[in-house]
Amino acid sequence: MLLQLNNISKWVHSGGQKVYLLKDISFWVNEGDFISIMGPSGSGKSTLLHILGMIDDFNEGEYTFLDESVHNLKEKYRANLYKQYIGFVFQSYHLIDELTVKENLEMPLLYKKYSGSERKAMVADMLDRFNIVGKKDLFPTQLSGGQQQLVGIARALIASPKLILADEPTGNLNSKQGEEIMDIFTQLNKEGVTIIQVTHSEKNMAYGSRVINLLDGSIQ
């Protein structure tokens, strides 16, 4: 088992009342799963994804990731944990505009202890694998959306994470570009990478092996 959530709840106070963003969420993920989180706007999909990625916290419940109790970890250890095992892919790609494709890929490695030559090799490998060698010196704004998302995925993969968290990865793309991205995810999943995606689209959902349906912060 890769991770397990037990009775996770998150709330905010609004107008003197507790408003639940997530309520009593429990599920587990095995290594090699391809899970789709579905649900309407405001159902808490992204919040759940952020909690899974450890970049957002929760108020109640337990989160175990590779036998580590995330809810008990200090921020620094938590950061080390997700740095090592998790890669993020975003709807709006979130590349750094001031960096070239190559530098964007290299960026996460700077925060993990790799030597310069190792970083070079890993970046070259990724550029190769996604067929974007020719684009390595371009800046994100010079790329199409599909190409940007390719770079985004490459960046998420560069440190060989066990888990990819994708927040509507095809949301800003046309259908052809979307299909290409989903094909890449399928391929990655076959290679053993666990994928959790948030999506609106039935079509994208079909690529996954399991679906979690959210409504008003609870699993249906």
Partner: peptide, 9 residues
Amino acid sequence: GIRKVAGAQ
């Protein structure tokens, strides 16, 4: 945000 997600402390 991107940097933090990428593991920057």
